[in-house]
Every structure is written in structure tokens, then in C-alpha cells.
Write a protein that binds this DNA or RNA. Structure first.
Lengths: 275, 275
DNA sequence: CGAAATCATGCATTAATCGGCATTAATGTG
DNA sequence: CACATTAATGCCGATTAATGCATGATTTCG
């Protein structure tokens, strides 16, 4: 258990506890009291409060993750496989054969990797084990893994080791994951370190590209990743807001729309089809 | 039986017992008491409680899965086709909770990672994306990825970047993959750089362990990894040559045999008791 | 049947928890 | 500015959970 230092706001401390919990799966009241330099009573109060909020499950001596909680990534994969695959194949169309591409963490980016056609020649760089495993052994793909401690809540290596290794690479394209997108705040992420890593990866690359599902449009997550400006490109779903796309065009951001997702039922037949 | 470590919350311990139960189909109170470092009374109390919850069925000396459960059958079906999983679970029994373990490349080592029970606390270090993806997000597992160019023929990062990163880590145990094992030449590998990396990983670790399927016994691959000598341990399949095992013992190499393919007949009633 | 192992129960001990109360510091109010 | 209010925290005492040990009952098996 490491020493978290002495001065913390309440919410800050609870956030740390929550992070520790996600990382280790369990926390002991005694250890936390030691680590934060507060009494066990205070920690218990925190845990009680967090349990009330559903962030943890109290047990005698500490707390555990609420049962059924594991990697968000795996769950996110099963959420909307089809839509993400459609988006993914659209992104693949934009990849230049033979280029060096960094794949950031995120279920959407995993879908992109899955959509890569067999034999596509590419140098892939990633800090995300799930994406690396998907790409490993593909003929034509040269795979570079960014190492480091894998942050459980992100599912990727974003620590100082990873940053140092990233600094030795200048990809042609950074395929960036995002948790929210608004016109005012640009791309945002839920986790501080993750956002920082995304900024670095983006800065190191000649171009950036973000594939964003429509459920993230209009959302602003806590931490800023980057504004919507060149050399960023976006790939959006077919049902993305038209006004947004035009506004993006004004800012010099190329916004590609993925093709409509062929539901058997012609619900959205009014969409402009190629005649 | 594992050494499950010493500090557990009650619910955790019961969850582990339940996992063990699902995996093996039966648990003995004595073994569990030993494994968790608590008295048999405590284990009995756990089992009683779990039985009350319907998670197990109490029997004299331990507990079984409730009679209606289909789980053991399922497990056996999925285990049967894969000898490596049997080997893997044997290896997992030898892992100390809370230790730092390096997982080398190889399908056997992937099976070991798969066999890791849910919630097992471990710091895992690996240069193999497939293993990293398997371990990513497991509660209790702290995952460190060794980065670098992934050599396609090996499926792992073994280049200079990987070596440099490996040098910053000193695992408690190196779970090493191998392509061949003979008494004269020890462990050998098919690929030069891979063999070199294995040597380094092994040297950096306090102990080494190789799980070797019987088809590799007596084979000598082109490149030398290490001789059969302490602090190396081996885990072999049940049908491994008896002469080989005895010869290994002479050299101070602990050789564990995985259990034979389960004729459910090893009740311990006839076990040698201390008179 | 009879010995050895295992079990259930009660009791004692230790540690964690909860509720209440006092203290401190920040914030609000007259 | 003085005073009330509130939030955060630590401390104390009563309560409860978890565990080990002792004892007598129960089961297993030769």
C-alpha cells in the first residue's frame, strides 16, 4: 500500500479509495487509514458513504467491489457490437496502407482493430492489451506494444513507463478514443491520466482521428483531451447531427459519416441513399 | 492446494472456496484450513453458511457441489479437450498469492493465465499480448506489460526495448515457456532471440518454473535456454516418464506432476494418519 | 462394536463497527 | 465583528462479528 500523502479533500480521498478499489478489487480500512494518515473511523465513514452510493460493498474489515463489477471494457464490447463494427470499418477505409498507426484504448478502437481486413499492411502501435492481442499474429501487421502498468479502469498502459516509450515513436496517425465530444470543449475523457496520455499520443502523431459513437456526442467528461481543430479528423455514425457536422467543417475538421447500418427494417429509409 | 495467503475478508474467503469448489467439484475442510491459514472450525462455519445459501452441500470432511449442479460436468467437458488447462491449474496451485510473476510467451503459459481463479491477487508481468489481454481487468491482478516490437513467430515482445524494460523488474517467479526439454541440454527454444529473452527473464527472477507438456519431453530445440538445475521447478503432465522425474529430483529440480485425468476416487479415508 | 476423525455448540478473546459527543475550522448571518 | 451553523474529524463506550479452543455428540470404517 502506498502513501497517499497527508492533505486531501473528502471527495478527493474517496476518489482515491475508489481508484484503489478498482485496481486491487479490495481495500482494507486499516491500510487506508494508514495510507491517508486519518483515523479508521474516517475511512469507515467514507466507505459507508461510498457503499450508499453503490461504489463499493462493505465487508467486515474493509470493502470490495460491488459484486458483478469487472472490466468495463468487456461489457462495453458486448453493448453495441454491430454499430461499432460499422464505425470501425469506416475508419479502416481511411487508413493508409503501410502507415504507422497508434491505437488508443477504448472499445471503439478495439472494434476498429477487429475490422482491419486480413492482410492489411500496417505498423500498429498500441498501449492496450486487448487491441494488441487482436492484432498479434496478423499477416502484414507489424505490432509495437507500449508497455507499462495497465490501469484497470482504462484497460491500457498510461503510466510514466508508457509515456517514455511513446516518446520514442512518431506515428502517422493517432486513432484516439474519447468519452465525450462537444463543440465547446472538444474531446474529453473520464480519467485524468488517460486524458493526459491521449494528449501526448495525439501530439506525437502527424494526424489524429477519433471515431465517436453518437451516444457520446454532446457529452462533456471531466478531463480535456483536445479541441476540435485540424489535424483532427472525426468518424461519426450515420445518425450524427447534421448541424454538428457542418460546424465541424467550418473549423477545418474532416467529419466522415459511416454508412447507415442496414437494419432489416427500413425504418430510416428517408436517409439519403445513393441512387 | 494453493497457499491462499493470510489476510482475507470473510466473504472473499467464501468466494474462493466456492471457486475452488466449482473448479474441483469437492473441497476438504482440512486442506482449506491449511490453505487459508485459519482453523478448521472457521472453515466449517464457512461451509455451513454456504450450504445454507445453497452454494454447496456438506459432507463428512468437507463439501461438494449441490447435487443439481451441472457445473463440474461442464468444467470437465471444457477441460478434457485441453490438457494444457489441467497443467495450467496445477501451476496455479504453486503460485503464491501476492507475488510478482513474469509470464513468458507460449500457449501453455496462456493456459496458465486462463486457469488463474477469479480474484487471485497477483502482480503479473508479461511480454505477450495474448496473456496480457487475458489478465487485463481481472480483479486482484496488477498487470505490467513489457512493451516493444512483437515478434510474430513468438507472439511476444523480445526486442531491445523489451529487454530494457525487463531489466527494471525483478519478479519473484518466472513462468517460462519452452520448446524442448532433455536431461542433457535442459530447456531449449526454437528462436534465437526468444531463447535469449527467456534467459534474461529467468536470470532476473528469484525462481523459475516451466510447465512442459509431454510432447516436448526428449526434444532438443536449436537454442539453449537453461539447464535443469535449481532454482528451476518443473510442472509435468501425469503421464511424464517416471525415470525423468527421478533424475530431475537428483539434480535438485522440483518436478510436480499434474493430477491424472480424474477418476474421482482419491478419497482420503485411507490416507496415512499420524498414529 | 470401538477407535479415530469430524462435527456442533458454547464460551472467551480479539478486532471491527456503530452511535454519540466534543473539537476544530470553514462558512453564513445579524 | 460576534455568533450561530455546518462539515469533517477524532475519541469513547457499547455492540457485534470473527475466530480459536474446549467439550461432548456424531459419523465413519475396519
Amino acid at each position: 500500500m502506498h502513501d497517499f500523502g497527508m492533505d486531501h479533500f473528502v471527495g478527493e480521498r474517496q476518489a482515491r479509495i475508489f481508484a484503489e478499489l478498482r485496481a486491487k478489487g479490495r481495500v482494507a480500512a486499516q491500510d487506508l487509514a494508514q495510507a491517508f494518515g486519518v483515523s479508521e473511523d474516517t475511512i469507515r465513514r467514507d466507505l459507508r458513504e461510498m457503499a450508499g452510493r453503490g461504489e463499493c460493498e462493505r465487508v467486515y474489515g474493509g470493502a470490495l467491489l460491488p459484486s458483478g463489477q469487472t472490466v468495463p471494457l468487456k461489457t462495453r464490447i458486448s453493448e453495441q457490437p454491430d454499430r461499432k463494427m460499422v464505425l470501425g470499418s469506416k475508419v479502416v477505409e481511411l487508413l493508409a496502407e503501410g502507415s504507422v498507426v497508434f491505437f488508443d484504448a477504448g472499445s471503439t478502437n478495439l472494434a476498429i482493430a477487429r475490422s482491419l481486413p486480413e492482410g492489411f499492411r500496417l505498423t500498429a502501435v498500441t498501449n492496450t492489451p486487448a487491441i494488441a492481442a487482436e492484432l498479434a499474429g496478423r499477416p502484414g501487421v507489424e505490432l509495437i506494444v507500449i508497455g507499462g502498468r495497465v490501469e484497470p479502469s482504462v484497460g491500457a498502459a498510461i503510466d510514466s513507463t508508457a509515456i517514455r516509450q511513446l516518446e520514442t515513436i512518431s506515428p502517422d496517425l493517432c486513432v484516439i478514443g474519447t468519452c465525450g465530444l462537444t463543440l465547446e470543449d472538444g474531446l474529453t475523457a473520464d480519467i485524468f491520466e488517460d486524458a493526459a496520455f491521449k494528449r501526448l499520443a495525439s501530439a506525437a502523431s502527424k494526424n489524429s482521428l477519433a471515431a465517436v459513437t453518437s451516444d457520446k456526442l454532446g457529452l462533456r467528461a471531466a478531463f480535456h483531451v483536445g479541441m476540435l481543430q485540424a489535424p483532427l479528423s472525426l468518424v461519426l455514425e450515420a445518425d450524427a447531427d447534421e448541424v454538428l457536422v457542418q460546424e465541424l467543417a467550418l473549423r477545418g475538421v474532416a467529419a466522415h459519416r459511416s454508412d447507415a447500418a442496414e437494419p432489416n427494417n427500413e425504418k430510416k429509409s428517408s436517409r439519403g441513399n445513393t441512387p
